[in-house]
């Protein structure tokens, strides 16, 4: 198969667009997936906990 410049460009443009949309949908779904809610909330708060030592399963809150 002979790949000429224009088909490379066409491929790049069409798949680039498709990819952009797919990614946007994927990320939004991930961010709003109900099952992830608890992790995110915990992550967001946990950095404010005491953090003087490694390990120590924090008491959550």
């Amino acid at each position: 198969m002979d790949i000429d410049h224009y088909s490379v460009v066409a491929f790049a443009k069409s798949w680039g667009l498709f990819y952009l949309i797919a990614l946007a949908v994927g990320v939004t779904v991930y961010a709003f997936w109900p099952g992830n809610r608890k992790r995110f909330d915990r992550a967001k708060k946990s950095i404010l906990d005491k953090d003087d030592r490694p390990g120590g399963e924090n008491d959550g809150n």
């Binding site: 790949i3 000429d4 410049h5 790049a12 680039g16 990819y19």
Partner: peptide, 17 residues
Amino acid sequence: SIGGLVEIAPLFTIHET
């Protein structure tokens, strides 16, 4: 990587144009 590939890869076939 995608962005770079899409933009740069075609430039290597550009000698045709």
